[in-house]
Amino acid sequence: MSVLVFIESSEGEIRKSSLEAVSYAAALDRGEVIALAIGEAEESALAKAGISGASRVLHAKDEQLKEDNIMAYASVVAEAMEKENAEILVLAKSSLGDAVASRVAIKSNAALASNVVELPDFSAGFKVKRGIYTGKAFVNVDLKAEKKILAIKKNAVPLKEDGAPCAVDAFASTVNEADFALKITGVEKAEGEILLPEAEIVVSGGRGMKGPENWHILEDLAKSLGAATGCSKPVSDMEWRPHHEHVGQTGIKVSPNLYIAVGISGAIQHLAGVNSSKCLVVINKDPEAPFFKAADYGIVGDAFEIVPKLTAAIKALNA
């Protein structure tokens, strides 16, 4: 028996969340850990899955798999599960991961748990803990089917970094023409930016920033910290910032080590997207802003004065 891990890459490297999934699979201790990468990637980059515990990487690199076609990817993952006799499929929860895992669950007749935050309890059955109610609670579920799919929440499980690069073998998948009913006609993606859902530090701005022309203040702070930038819903609704930066109940759910909220009031729907951050810093001119109740550290004051000072202090620390 084996554990298959579907891994995703960004800018030529395996995503941290995918390495967390590989680490999780290794910690399961339920047989050989095999990573599966689909689409274009360098072998030397994929081999690094070994560092997090994979014994080998399968690489499906058919020309038709260059774009992340949900249906074709699901077929490849299900085929690899079958060929490798995998009992468990592990993957990082993501835009593509969710879309693929749900189809694989039906193809492979597997039980699926999404937003998993801990290793399972094998003492009686196969019990996993997963986040529900947008971070406000957890549920322990017993997975009943023979095969299981676990989609792991980001930054929730430890990263293993003490292994060695492993072999990368080509995976010849069957091309199923029907899967290409889905056509990808264009991709627009920010280059060279830290991806918000993957970021270890997030600097986020709300309506208190007054307008898009002021965002450079937050971008400077983000740059000094190696952070991604996020925003509240009204900010993306007003198109001050792109939609993929919108954090909260109806946007991206982040779980970084540090979330710095600037000029965000802390409405419950915003908090729902940030409540699994390890450390929350709030900067707001209103001492009564509800965000302070959820924060670890707070500063009351004008963002336009405080943020540049903070950026300078971080730069001084890094110097």
Binding site: V139, K144, A145, Y297
Partner: peptide, 23 residues
């Protein structure tokens, strides 16, 4: 067919007090 069964629910641990820093 049965794929998953809920055992029980949990709430996250309560949050500590916020620490305020002077502007």
């Amino acid at each position: 067919g049965e794929f998953s069964v809920v055992e029980n629910y949990e709430l996250p641990p309560a949050k500590g007090e916020v620490r305020m820093v002077d502007a």
